[in-house]
């Protein structure tokens, strides 16, 4: 909670200053706005709370009083049975490995390409730049069928690689790094160059440490996208134990419709890891999404 309290201070003065002008009207307006906003924000939290409350109530009580938001018999049995009835542990492990590998490779590969585009004059650079720019328009999600054929031909179906490889060459990430690296003072690079540092050294020792905001933006975006990917892992990861959390959870729908508590418990468990990360890094995540989205 400490982390989340910090960002508010930066905007304090801004909000206060903006409510100048006709003071009375401004105050009334702000009060109305605050009420509306708070109401909607609370409504937005309802599905989370409803899933949480349901997961902690016994099934027969839910059937009898479906709309009651409290329980006479709070318990975590549903979590125990959810954990036992589906391989949630495996799904966590798979999701975690796939997302982490994707993030690491994306950050390295895309920042290297961006570094070359900013600081290295090589023949064909204009063409490469144009190619990557055109890549921004490629709707990759629409191409799952030919992509599936390709990975079958490569005998990579069902592996982590099938999940990681197609996600790494991310044009947006190159442009985020490109914009950031361009802002690094050239004098730094020239000084390193005069000291006889190799390009690799300049990239890894001078440029990358300065790129931390871009790195975190790209890492966050890639991690969320990879963690929540659905269609591609649905096609590629066919064994229950190799699945990721989103695909595994989707198998529960329409299954046992009466076991509300257990289904909601699985949901809560599925939501938890990324939500926990989000609560810890709220500010950075919002900033990262804004950075990558706007590019």
């Amino acid at each position: 909670m400490t982390a989340t309290a910090v960002p508010a201070t930066g905007t304090d003065r801004r909000g206060a200053r903006r409510s100048g002008g006709s003071v009375e009207a401004g105050k009334a307006f702000n009060r109305l706005a605050a009420t509306c906003l708070t109401l909607f924000a609370l409504i937005w939290l309802v599905p989370f709370l409803w899933a949480l409350v349901t997961s902690l109530r016994p099934d027969d009580e839910i059937a009898q009083h479906p709309m009651r938001p409290w329980s006479n018999n709070w318990n975590i049995d549903a979590y125990r049975s959810a954990w036992e009835s589906s391989p949630l542990g495996w799904w966590y492990v798979n999701s975690f490995i796939i997302s982490t590998l994707t993030v690491v490779f994306t950050v390295i590969v895309c920042s290297m390409a961006a570094f070359a585009l900013v600081h290295l004059g090589f023949r064909g650079k204009v063409a490469v730049f144009g190619l990557i720019l055109a890549g921004l328009m490629l709707p990759t999600e629409a191409l799952v069928l030919p992509q599936f054929m390709e990975f079958r031909a490569l005998h990579l179906l069902g592996t982590y690689w099938a999940m990681v490889l197609p996600a790494v060459a991310l044009p947006v990430a190159v442009f985020v790094f490109h914009a950031f690296i361009k802002g690094i003072p050239i004098a730094l690079i020239e000084a390193a160059r005069l000291d006889g540092a190799s390009w690799w050294r300049i990239y890894s020792v001078v440029v990358m440490p300065l790129c931390r905001p871009a790195m975190s933006a790209v890492a966050i975006l890639t991690f969320i996208t990879s963690w929540n990917a659905f269609l591609w892992p649905l096609l590629v990861l066919t064994h229950v134990k190799t699945q990721t959390i989103p695909v595994g959870l989707s198998g529960l729908i329409g299954g046992a419709a009466i076991q509300y508590a257990e289904t909601m418990a699985s949901c809560v468990l599925g939501i938890l890891p990324l939500l926990a990360v989000f609560l810890l890094l709220q500010r950075q995540i919002a900033q990262g999404v804004a950075n990558t989205g706007i590019k």
Binding site: G15, I271, L275, Q282, I285, V289
Partner: peptide, 25 residues
């Protein structure tokens, strides 16, 4: 929300949290 003096983090939390939830959940 940008006019709010306090609790901006709360609005961001409430509105943005669903975005990190997997579609199947």
């Amino acid at each position: 929300a940008s006019r709010m003096i306090r609790h901006q983090w709360f609005f961001r939390l409430a509105f943005f949290a669903p975005y990190v939830v997997p579609s199947s959940a």
